[in-house]
């Protein structure tokens, strides 16, 4: 029972970051109606940039966070410019193919620019773990959960409480109607893309501080986690992405506790496969 609870708590803490990834994916997919497979790789760029900075300037946490987010944003601008804006008149598939291409580039880029495949990422290890009864809350987990929750609250406030957010949701709902209301849909799309990239960068910080390291495989990993969270939540719903991410996190940690580490990825991929297999006609959202 304690194991179950511990795994549940760990899962929620981990899942919160998956929720963030899912939200980033959903924002881009919801507004632009195009899948950004390079979402994970853009975060990868940010984390590598942060890692490089932390090697050159140990102990500088705030600058590392800033550089990580900036790196993800910069890569995001690149993807938006070449895979989305430049292809806005083409079919959505064309953007998706283009994001593969960018993915290859970004992954190769970070490998070429790094002395080793595995790069360290700083973690505020001095933070103490907190024990609540028999449940242990590790500091990196707490940081993931509290950071992700804060970011999600801020994001939801932005989307549901501001005019900018309402506009984003209007475009996601019906870009045609939004145009008729006088919205410049292309600009809103680019803005949503940047918001998603920033959210991705922040998620990258939270995840990387927990892993304390990063490899080029992170791009694929983050894309799969984010896509799974989005799909589990019904593809296109923002609250759905949050729930999807948490569910994925809990399933992973429960598997880890009860069956061991090697099953963890297997189960999360199986979960994605099952979601598709069991709901082949999934409604791929039409609004956030």
């Amino acid at each position: 029972m304690v194991d179950f609870l511990q795994a549940l708590v760990d899962g929620v803490m981990l899942g919160a970051t998956y929720s963030l990834l899912g939200l980033g994916f959903t924002l881009i997919f919801g507004v632009l109606r195009r899948l950004n497979l390079a979402f994970g790789p853009t975060i990868l760029v940010g984390i590598y940039a942060g890692s490089h900075l932390s090697l050159a300037w140990p102990g500088a946490l705030v600058p590392v966070v800033a550089v990580t987010v900036a790196g993800a944003l910069l890569a995001g601008v690149y993807v938006e410019r070449f895979s989305f804006r430049a292809l806005a008149r083409q079919a959505p598939v064309v953007s998706m193919i283009s994001t593969f291409a960018v993915w290859m580039q970004l992954q190769e880029l970070v490998s070429l620019l790094s002395p080793s495949r595995t790069m360290p990422y700083p973690s505020p290890v001095w933070l103490p773990a907190v024990a609540v009864g028999p449940i242990l809350l590790r500091s990196d987990g707490l940081l993931m959960w509290s950071g992700a929750t804060l970011i999600m609250l801020a994001l939801f406030a932005l989307l549901y409480r501001t005019r900018f957010g309402t506009t984003i949701r209007a475009v996601a709902d019906s870009s045609e109607a939004a145009t008729l209301m006088g919205v410049n849909v292309a600009m809103v799309g680019a803005a949503a893309f940047l918001v998603a990239s920033a959210v991705g960068g922040l998620a990258g910080v939270l995840i990387a501080q927990s892993h304390q390291q990063v490899t080029p495989y992170f791009g694929l990993w983050a894309t799969v986690k984010g896509m799974t969270a989005m799909l589990l939540g019904g593809a296109g719903s923002l609250p759905g992405a949050v729930v999807g991410g948490l569910a994925l996190g809990v399933v992973e940690t429960q598997t880890l506790w009860h069956f061991g580490g090697q099953w963890r990825d297997l189960v999360s991929y199986a979960l994605l496969f099952l979601v598709v297999a069991l709901s082949p006609r999934t409604r791929w959202g039409s609004g956030l």
Binding site: L35, V224, M227, T228, L231, A235, Q262, D265, L266, Y269, A270, L272, F273, V276, A277, L278, S279, P280, R281, T282, W284
Partner: peptide, 25 residues
């Protein structure tokens, strides 16, 4: 069996999951 029906994004996601499942298995 499970993947004849899904199309579009669903098929793409399912096939990606399958490929990774094989690798992890």
């Amino acid at each position: 069996g499970p993947m004849a029906a899904p199309r579009g994004l669903a098929f793409a996601a399912g096939s990606l999951a399958f490929g990774e499942l094989v690798r992890v298995a």
